[in-house]
C-alpha cells in the first residue's frame, strides 16, 4: 500500500462560530494529481492552508511527506512546494532575482541556483520578463512567476491553490504541463481550481469539497463534469443524502475519506 505524500484526515477548523472544515479527509499519493473543486467558501483554501502548516486544525491530522506541515524539518521542506494565496514573490525584485531567491530559500545548492532559475524561466516561458520587476508584471505573468518560484526546486509534494485563475489559455497549458511533468517525476500534486474543464484535463482524481468536507469524487475523464459536480453538491445539500448518494450522478464516494 502506498503511503500518501499529502494527507488530510478528519480535519476540523472553525473561524469563530463558522465551521470551515468539517472533518475533511483527502490524500494524494506520489505520482498523482488530485484536484479539489468546490463552490466559494467550500473550504478548499482553508484545507490547503492547513496542509501547508499556515493554519492549525482544531482536530484531525495533516501530513506532508509523513511530517506535520507546521513543523517540517529542513530535509522534508526541501521537497515541498506550494502557492496558497500570495506566492513567494517580492514585488521589488525582478523575475530572475525572485527565482534565485526562491531557489535559495527552498534549499537549492548555491552552485545550482542559476541553472534552477533558468530552468524555471524556461518551463513557464518567462524569459521575456526575466529582467522585469515582479510588481510590473501582468496578473497572469505574476501568477506564472509564483508557480515558477514554488517549483524551482522540483518538489516531491506540490500544493497549488487556483494556479490558473489569472492565466490566459497559453499560461494554462504551461502550468498543466508543469503539473503533469511533476507527477510523472513522482511528485504528489494537489490543485484547487474553479476551472472544471482544466481540472478534467490535469487531474487523475477530482475531489468535490462542499461545506468543509469531501462529499465525493468525480471521474475527470467522464463527460459533462460540470453537471456531475452540481449534482454532487446538490445531493450533499439534500437532507438524508449520505456521501454515497452522488455515485448515481456520475461520482463515487471519496477515496480519501477517513484516510488513516
Amino acid at each position: 500500500m502506498t503511503t500518501p505524500a499529502l494527507l488530510l484526515d478528519a480535519v476540523r477548523r472553525s473561524f469563530g462560530t463558522r465551521p470551515a472544515l468539517d472533518g475533511l479527509s483527502l490524500k494524494v499519493d506520489p505520482g498523482e494529481v488530485v484536484a479539489m473543486i468546490g463552490l466559494n467558501g467550500a473550504g478548499k483554501t482553508t484545507a490547503l492552508r492547513v496542509l501547508t502548516g499556515r493554519l492549525r486544525p482544531a482536530s484531525g491530522t495533516a501530513r506532508v511527506l509523513q511530517r506535520d506541515p507546521a513543523r517540517l524539518d529542513v530535509a522534508t521542506a526541501r521537497r515541498v512546494g506550494n502557492v496558497v494565496g500570495a506566492p513567494l514573490v517580492d514585488p521589488a525584485l525582478t523575475v530572475a532575482e525572485n527565482l534565485r531567491a526562491a531557489a535559495l530559500l527552498n534549499g537549492v545548492p548555491r552552485a545550482q541556483v542559476t541553472a534552477a532559475g533558468a530552468a524555471a524561466v524556461g518551463r513557464l516561458d518567462l524569459a521575456a520578463w526575466a529582467g522585469a520587476r515582479a510588481r510590473d508584471l501582468s496578473a497572469g505573468n505574476a501568477q506564472r512567476l509564483g508557480v515558477a518560484c514554488a517549483t524551482v526546486h522540483d518538489p516531491a509534494a506540490l500544493v497549488l491553490d487556483e494556479p490558473t485563475s489569472a492565466l490566459d489559455p497559453r499560461g494554462v497549458v504551461l502550468v498543466r504541463e508543469l503539473v503533469r511533468e511533476r507527477a510523472r517525476a513522482g511528485a504528489a500534486v494537489l490543485v484547487s481550481s474553479h476551472h472544471l474543464d482544466e481540472v478534467a484535463r490535469v487531474a487523475d482524481r477530482v475531489a468535490v469539497v462542499h461545506a468543509g468536507r469531501v462529499v465525493g469524487e468525480l471521474d475527470p475523464r467522464g463527460a459533462d463534469i460540470e453537471r456531475r459536480f452540481f449534482a454532487m453538491v446538490l445531493a450533499a445539500d439534500t437532507p438524508g443524502s449520505g456521501p454515497d448518494a452522488p455515485a448515481g450522478a456520475g461520482g463515487r464516494a471519496p477515496r480519501g475519506r477517513r484516510a488513516a
Binding site: 506532508v64 506541515p69 506550494n82 513567494l88 530559500l105 534549499g107
Partner: peptide
C-alpha cells in the same frame, strides 16, 4: 506574503 515562508527549507 508571509504565508509563503511556510514549508521552506530556510
Amino acid at each position: 506574503r508571509a504565508g509563503a515562508y511556510f514549508g521552506l527549507a530556510t
